[in-house]
Amino acid sequence: MKVRVYVSLKNGVLDPQGRAIQHSLEGLGFSGVQDVRAGRLIELEVDDTVTDAALDEMCQKLLANMVIENYRVERIAA
C-alpha cells in the first residue's frame, strides 16, 4: 500500500524558501500570489500490516521535525 506523508512548516514559522519562490513568481509576472509555503512530500510503500500508530511514530521520530513542522498522513488505496 502506498502512503503519502505531507510535511509542512507550522503556522508562524517563517519560510525563507517560500518567500523566495513567491518573489520569483512575481518576477515572472504572476500577480495575486499572496503567500507561498514550501513543504515536502514523502511517499512510502508499506505492508498492509503497518498501523496508523506506526506511521505516526515514523513521522514524529524522523520524517517531520515537530519543533517546526506539521505532518499529514494519507493512505492511497492500491
Binding site: 517563517l14 525563507p16 521535525n65 519543533v67
Partner: peptide, 17 residues
C-alpha cells in the same frame, strides 16, 4: 544536537536563502 533533542529549537534555511 537539535535534531537529537539534546538542545531545543531548530536550524532553518538562512533568511537570505
Amino acid at each position: 544536537l537539535t535534531e537529537a533533542g539534546l538542545l531545543p529549537g531548530a536550524l532553518m534555511r538562512n533568511a537570505g536563502i
